[in-house]
Amino acid sequence: MDSVTQHVWTVARFVARASGLLVVLMALLISADILARQFLNATLLSGGVGELAGYALAAVSAWGASLTLLKRAHIRIDTVQALLPRPLSIALDLFAMATFAIASGVLAWMGWGTFARSFALDSRSMTPLAAPLAVPQGIWLAGLAFLTLTAVVLLVQAVRLLLRGERRAALELVGTRTATEDLEEQKSVVESSGVGGARA
């Protein structure tokens, strides 16, 4: 794998792991809020835990989408594609990545408008938390921008590989995910869980 794609992978994986820990943290915070409400007659963050979880969701989903894209796990319907001759099928793979890049670019561009407006107006959420909206929107927007960057990098690298005749390597960047790859992942999970179907 070339170094640009490698860098994107590194960043995407690091952010996805941080995001995963954020989800775990929010689960614990929401639980603590429920228990505090019930047993201490108090709420955490003046009832703003749910709002915070909302912001976390926006950040996690925008930033996490890059790793999903690198793993080629965004849902695509390849029923028709599977029937096509190989060159046409590869063309559709490139087309799919191009549309993804444009769609996430549109989202990022629109998200920029929302962020810039909140920043200019110093907008606050109308809740007891009164969060400055530019902060969570900025994090979200940066995630969308990184997603667009990831898609563009994948597309450009795949085209370069194809021009060099390295079809298989190109498919590893933009092709549809095969059943074997899914299986590898599932198996590794079960093996690492240590039980591995031994008892029946």
């Binding site: 792991r17 989903s61 996490g64 790793l67 999903t68 849902i75 989202l107």
Partner: peptide, 22 residues
């Protein structure tokens, strides 16, 4: 284990949420 579970969670969540937003 939490790190791995979290990473897998984020991947699936991002995939679903992007569809939901769209």
């Amino acid at each position: 284990m939490l790190l791995d579970a979290g990473e897998a969670t984020v991947g699936t969540t991002a995939m679903i949420l992007l569809i939901v937003v769209a």
